[in-house]
């Protein structure tokens, strides 16, 4: 479904060039559950934004459902974001003046869906995420965990194929973080492709496929390690480290 080949992403800072992504090759299939880990600044968010078409590569090709998206126009990329990709952010990014229900409804409005079709979908999303008694609350009346649940409901209301979560538990306490991860995993079980960027090894190791990044490169990919035949060029030195950290 997602095919990244030789992806580079350079940022110009003054006259210096920062290689946020350095020759990324990655193939993701429908329904996968992937965690991306690595130190701060290793390019995790950049990779996620690129997959989500919020950012574009400086070099390389990106095929999304066999379609080369690097050549698409802004409007076409926006349409793909609307229809097939959902984002969950560390900072929730709820619109403070809208209620929980209205925040969840927003993608439907932007997609031009008629109000009478929107309401049942919003109602279902609210009850699915356990927010029924919070529907008319504004974000400042919600706890962190509730806010992130609203954000997840908003990210999935258009029934996207891909859900991208950048440190979704970064601003949450342990308990709410676990709740949020449980909801995301449940969505994955229902078939959505889930990619979580996280610092938290506990969370990262829950994923069926774990990717380690360092300095803009994929340091290890558990998927490739368990199927060494598919990509003989990649060495698996970080695998042990990842396993080791699971015991901490």
């Amino acid at each position: 479904m997602i095919e990244l080949s030789n992806i580079h992403r350079d940022f110009k800072v003054g006259d210096q060039s920062v290689h946020a992504l350095d020759n990324i090759n990655l193939s993701i299939h429908p329904g996968e559950y992937i965690s991306i880990m690595g130190p701060s600044g290793s390019g995790k968010s950049t990779l996620l934004n690129l997959i989500g078409l919020l950012d574009s590569a400086s070099k390389g090709t990106y095929l999304l459902n066999q379609q080369d998206v690097t050549v698409l126009h802004e409007r076409e990329k926006a349409a793909i974001r609307s229809q097939t990709i959902g984002f969950v952010f560390q900072a929730f990014h709820l619109i403070p003046r809208l209620t929980a229900a209205e925040n969840i409804e927003l993608p439907l409005i932007l997609a031009g869906i008629a109000p009478e079709q929107r309401q049942p979908r919003v109602q279902k999303a609210i009850s699915d995420t356990g927010l029924s008694d919070r529907a008319d609350h504004t974000p400042d009346q919600l706890s962190g965990g509730q806010r992130q649940r609203v954000a997840i409901a908003r990210a999935t209301i258009m029934q996207p194929k891909i859900l991208l979560a950048d440190e979704p538990t970064g601003n949450l306490d342990q308990k709410s973080g676990q709740d949020v991860i449980a909801i995301l995993e449940q969505l994955n079980q229902q078939g959505i492709s889930l990619i979580i960027v996280t610092h938290d090894a506990h969370i990262g190791l829950r994923a069926k496929r774990q990717i380690q990044m360092l300095d803009g490169r994929i340091q290890s990919d558990s998927h490739l390690n368990s199927n060494p035949g598919t990509s003989p060029g990649t060495s698996p030195p970080r695998q042990d480290q990842a396993n080791a950290s699971s015991h901490t």
């Binding site: 989500g52 919020l54 802004e74 409007r75 926006a78 349409a79 793909i80 974001r81 609307s82 229809q83 990709i85 984002f87 900072a91 990014h93 619109i95 927003l106 993608p107 932007l110 997609a111 908003r154 258009m158």
Partner: peptide
């Protein structure tokens, strides 16, 4: 700005 960034992430094209 963050709101506009969000709208874009949610699939709003420039014209919208």
């Amino acid at each position: 700005k963050t709101e506009i960034g969000l709208l874009k992430a949610l699939g709003a094209p420039q014209t919208q």
